[in-house]
Simulated scan of single mutants.
Amino acid sequence: MDDTLTIMSMNIRDGAHGHLAELADLITAQDPDIVGIQEAKGWRRPWWSPRRHGKALRTVMEATGLRVAIYTPSRTHGCDLVTLIGPRIQPTGYRRNVGEGHLHHGASRVRFTIDGRPKEEVWEHLNTHFSPFSGAHRLIEASWLTEYAGAPRRLLTGDLNSDLPEKWGGIADPLNWDGLIPPNLRSRHLRPGPGHQPSDRDATALLIEAGWRSAHLDHVRQATVGHWHGSESWEHAPDHILVSSDLAADVLRHETLRPPPGVEPFSDHHAIVATLAI
Rank of each mutant, 00 (worst) to 15 (best):
M1Y: 11
D3I: 14
D3E: 15
T4G: 09
M8W: 09
S9V: 07
I12H: 08
R13N: 15
G15C: 07
G18E: 13
E22Q: 15
D25M: 12
D31M: 14
D33A: 05
A40D: 01
R44N: 11
R45M: 13
P46L: 09
W47M: 07
W48V: 11
S49L: 14
R52Y: 14
H53D: 12
G54F: 03
L57H: 06
R58E: 15
T59I: 08
V60C: 03
T64R: 02
G65M: 02
V68S: 08
I70L: 11
Y71C: 07
Y71Q: 06
S74F: 04
S74Y: 06
L81N: 00
T83M: 03
T83K: 05
L84R: 05
G86V: 04
P91Q: 04
V98W: 00
P118K: 00
E121S: 10
L126I: 04
P132D: 02
G135T: 01
I140F: 12
E141Q: 05
E141N: 06
A142Y: 07
Y148W: 10
Y148E: 04
T157K: 02
S162E: 11
D163V: 06
L164V: 07
P165Q: 08
K167D: 11
W168R: 00
G169N: 02
P174K: 03
D178Y: 09
L180G: 07
P182G: 07
P182M: 08
P182R: 09
P183S: 06
P183K: 02
N184E: 15
L185W: 07
L185R: 10
H189S: 13
R191T: 12
R191H: 13
P192V: 04
G195R: 01
G195Y: 01
H196N: 11
I208H: 07
E209M: 14
E209P: 00
G211W: 01
W212T: 03
R213Q: 14
S214E: 12
S214R: 10
L217E: 15
R221S: 11
T224F: 01
G230L: 09
P238Q: 12
I241E: 03
A248P: 08
D250M: 13
L257N: 07
R258D: 13
E264A: 15
E264Y: 13
P265Y: 07
H269E: 09
A271Q: 02
I278F: 04
